[in-house]
């Protein structure tokens, strides 16, 4: 079987306007090369984190996965469908949902349930089916009691859960999260991360999580690192985070526990490989 996501030598050049989300690459006004030949495959059901400094191309890559952007060169296949074929667009957008950074700027309706219904309404489904999907999606993120709420009465974390429910209502196989927690407080962050983890483990949803938080990246089964439009690392968190010096050179951090472990190892304390969590560390030390 083909992998769920296949990206082959993907290149993307922004036309000569300023891309609103290209972070550190803004400026000048000329053409901006955002992706310089990315190859990547992701299997159905994987939980993948994508890290990299601002302007490294993470968001641009994410926007290729549901045909919001189409390759300048190379190709992207979602479940065997090539995104650059015009007649695949709607199927691709149904298969891959997206959740963005700013919870306020992705809610279109004035109540929670109407917003979650937006995707299925776009698919032209009958009213009963939409109702059914909206209820399922709200139940999956634990917001059934808030269905009638106006968005401005929700916390940031709850708004992000609405956005996740909105993506879920289209019954996607994969959801791409573009820095979903960076504008949230710790409570909201936990709500969102717990939900993402649960959707992956229980519903088998393929997850691509873009984040600046190394602790969040450490939750994934696989970590991708981008720099200047290229994929520079790809592996399980234990392996990727072993290369602390390289990550620091990229302007990234280590998860605190990994950081502590590496310092202790440097001072001669024998620790097993792949220490990521407090529990791993306690087991190794005691």
């Amino acid at each position: 079987m083909r992998p769920f996501i296949e990206i082959e030598n993907l290149k993307y050049v922004y036309p000569s306007f300023i891309p609103p989300h290209a972070g550190g690459q803004r400026g000048g006004g000329g053409q901006i090369v955002a992706l310089r030949g990315v190859n990547l495959t992701i299997e159905q059901g994987e939980f993948v984190a994508l890290i990299g400094p601002n302007g490294s191309g993470k968001s641009t890559l994410a926007r290729h996965l549901n045909a919001l952007l189409l390759p300048t060169a190379g190709a992207v296949w979602i479940d065997g469908l090539r995104t650059s074929d015009a007649h695949n667009v709607w199927a691709v957008r149904q298969k891959v949902g997206m959740v963005f950074q700013n919870p306020d700027n992705q809610i279109v309706a004035t109540t929670v349930e109407e917003d979650v219904a937006f995707g299925p309404e776009n698919m032209g489904l009958p009213a009963d089916e939409i109702r059914h999907r909206v209820d399922d999606a709200l139940a999956a993120v634990g917001l059934l009691d808030y269905r009638q709420y106006p968005p401005q009465m929700l916390s940031g974390g709850q708004k992000q859960l609405v956005a996740i429910a909105g993506a879920l209502a289209a019954r996607p196989s994969c959801i791409v999260f573009d820095e979903p927690t960076s504008m949230l407080d710790p409570v909201g962050r936990r709500q969102v991360l717990d939900t993402i983890r649960r959707l992956n483990a229980e519903e088998g949803i393929t997850v691509l999580l873009i984040t600046h938080s190394m602790s969040e990246a450490a939750m994934a089964q696989r970590v991708l690192v981008m720099e200047a439009g290229r994929m520079v690392m790809d592996g399980p968190p234990a392996i990727v985070f072993e290369r602390g010096a390289r990550l620091r050179a990229l302007g990234l951090d280590l998860p605190p526990i990994v950081d502590i472990a590496q310092r202790l190892q440097a001072w001669g304390l024998p620790l097993p490989q792949g220490v990521l969590t407090v529990q791993d560390m306690v087991d190794a030390l005691c």
Partner: peptide
């Protein structure tokens, strides 16, 4: 409702 910093959680454990 704040996360305990991981180093503190480790030392605590």
């Amino acid at each position: 409702g704040l996360d305990v910093p991981q180093p503190v959680a480790l030392l605590q454990a």
